[in-house]
């Protein structure tokens, strides 16, 4: 009996080890791919880094015919759409998070809401684009006519609204979690002192979860920066710096999607890749900061 048991143990040990090795290998592979993407972008953007230097970030002209590549209009467009989207979506995301994290934690209502909001994240972005084009654009055009602006319909404002809807589930899911993590004894203490529910939310829950809510917004921002398809369909794709929130513009992700497949010429291709590199770095930095805040919050 004894030898048989040892044999069996050896078998388990072998399986354990093989399993662990496989897991480690696959995990490492994922990291390697990420780093490889970074280096691919870096190497391929050398020609543009060399030829354009810092001018890439402050030149206003993007003219492939004349071989001039200034990404400032797209930088402005990206920041404007992303932050506007964040501003539009913040009240909604915090409201929904409080609603689900405090008022309706369980039950059919809560489940339905949670699923619907998660579903928002699962809708392909081209569908958002289509919906925006057919529903939102005519509405925005009416608003623009009332405000005596050129009735483009498409533009920074339209894409920001769509982006706001698209990033909602990302900030909601994190905010809801941190709100439901507020210790019960804190809330109960406040109630016992005679605080109303409104006071508990504004004086206890929001101050307590401040950094968590902020991290949620930050992750949502990261998502907004990189969104491509829906924005391309709604932003108007002009190469000039937007003059207001109703004017058309362009974002970095959308320029890459539009122009990369037909880009010929070393500097042109390289300039687009440099833009991708920049987007990659910004998205990484935002994600790392967001994760860091969450980590500090949960510990």
């Amino acid at each position: 009996m004894i030898p048989a048991i040892t044999f069996k143990n050896n078998g388990i040990n072998f399986k354990e080890k093989a399993f662990k090795k496989t897991l480690t290998l696959l995990a490492i592979l994922a990291v390697v791919i990420l780093i490889a993407i970074f280096f691919t972008l870096l190497i391929n953007s050398f020609p543009s880094l060399k030829a354009l230097g810092a001018g890439f970030f402050y030149d206003k002209t993007w003219d492939p015919v004349a071989d001039e590549y200034g990404a400032l209009p797209f930088l402005v467009g990206t920041l404007l759409t992303s932050f506007l989207a964040l501003i539009i979506s913040t009240p909604f995301s915090i409201a929904v998070a409080i609603f689900l994290g405090e008022y309706y934690k369980k039950g059919i209502v809560a489940e339905t809401f949670k699923n619907v909001i998660d579903l928002l994240a699962g809708i392909p972005s081209v569908i958002y684009g289509f919906w925006g084009l057919f529903v939102l654009v005519p509405v925005v055009r009416v608003i623009e006519l009332k405000l005596n602006l050129p009735p483009y319909g498409v533009g920074i404002f339209t894409s920001s609204i769509i982006l706001a809807i698209m990033i909602l589930p990302f900030s909601v899911s994190l905010s809801r979690q941190v709100i439901s993590m507020v210790p019960d004894n804190l809330k109960e203490a406040a109630y016992s002192l005679g605080a109303t529910r409104f006071e508990v939310i504004t004086k206890i829950i929001i101050p307590y979860t401040k950094s968590g809510l902020f991290a949620g917004l930050l992750l949502a921002l990261g998502r907004a920066l990189g969104e491509t398809m829906a924005v391309t369909m709604l932003i108007g794709n002009t190469h000039s710096i937007p003059t207001g929130i109703f004017s058309p513009g362009n974002t970095m992700a959308s320029v890459i999607a539009n122009e990369f497949s037909e880009a010929t010429g070393k500097i042109y291709t390289s300039a687009l890749i440099e833009m991708a590199l920049f987007l990659f770095v910004v998205a990484t930095v935002i994600n790392v900061i967001g994760k860091q805040i969450i980590k500090r919050f949960t510990i």
């Binding site: 993007w62 015919v65 004349a66 108007g236």
Partner: peptide, 9 residues
């Protein structure tokens, strides 16, 4: 691709 004087893309 051009640097268009006016218009939407």
């Amino acid at each position: 691709s051009l640097d268009w004087p006016v218009g939407l893309g």
